[in-house]
Design a protein around this nucleic acid. Sequence first.
DNA 1: CTTATGTATAGACAGGTGTCAATATAGATA
DNA 2: TATCTATATTGACACCTGTCTATACATAAG
Lengths: 113, 113
Amino acid sequence: MEPLELLECGSPLTREPLNADQAAAVARVFKALGDPVRLRILSIVASHAGGEACVCDITGAFDVSQPTISHHLKVLKEVGLLVSERRASWVYYRLVPETLAELSGLITVPAPA
Amino acid sequence: MEPLELLECGSPLTREPLNADQAAAVARVFKALGDPVRLRILSIVASHAGGEACVCDITGAFDVSQPTISHHLKVLKEVGLLVSERRASWVYYRLVPETLAELSGLITVPAPA
DNA sequence: CTTATGTATAGACAGGTGTCAATATAGATA
DNA sequence: TATCTATATTGACACCTGTCTATACATAAG
């Protein structure tokens, strides 16, 4: 899925009101970031050596079950924040920096005049 | 409420894993952004002339009821994204740019080397 | 082929969330 | 005081979400 297509020619949140479609597309991604476990997963993946982490690198950092981690990874993948690749027995997750960059740009507030 | 105190000396999401407390504090704010109506409210307030909008400026832009708008405004206020001030019969809402800026900084991805 | 390990899916369930109608509150005006 | 307008709160309800256990799937190793 192409993340946030609607925003590719969009404006920062502070310049003009978002229309309903843009808002729905962006809200999906923010919603995915709105869970503490998912935020930590994202930061573990993003800061991991080599730019990627396998599920086993992540599961150990939490008190929640492995299926729960798998569920959160799926959510992060579905909104375009992570991609995954299987290599042998392990599945490696990697950040999609473009998606974060779009969000970051969207909520950037112009410096006060 | 002081927004995101835990992050004031924090690192971008991509530098090192967030701890549980930081993740919980940040997730509250992203969660508030994870609703299309709230995103649109925020963009209406942020882009409105004078940097503020009264509830009546917002309600008309949506098909949802006035109590629902009031509820969303409360959520945005509670996480430190908006502040409000009553003047006569009207209540004006204004963006807290620092909160957005912290979020934006947090999800900023370093340029590829 | 069988077994072991890493990961994903299915189903269930408690608690949370967005919405509404009804009502309350605050301020202005008469 | 009474009444009107703008906004907030309450309570209800359908739906969504995060979590678990149990199980399935994928790959590797005997």
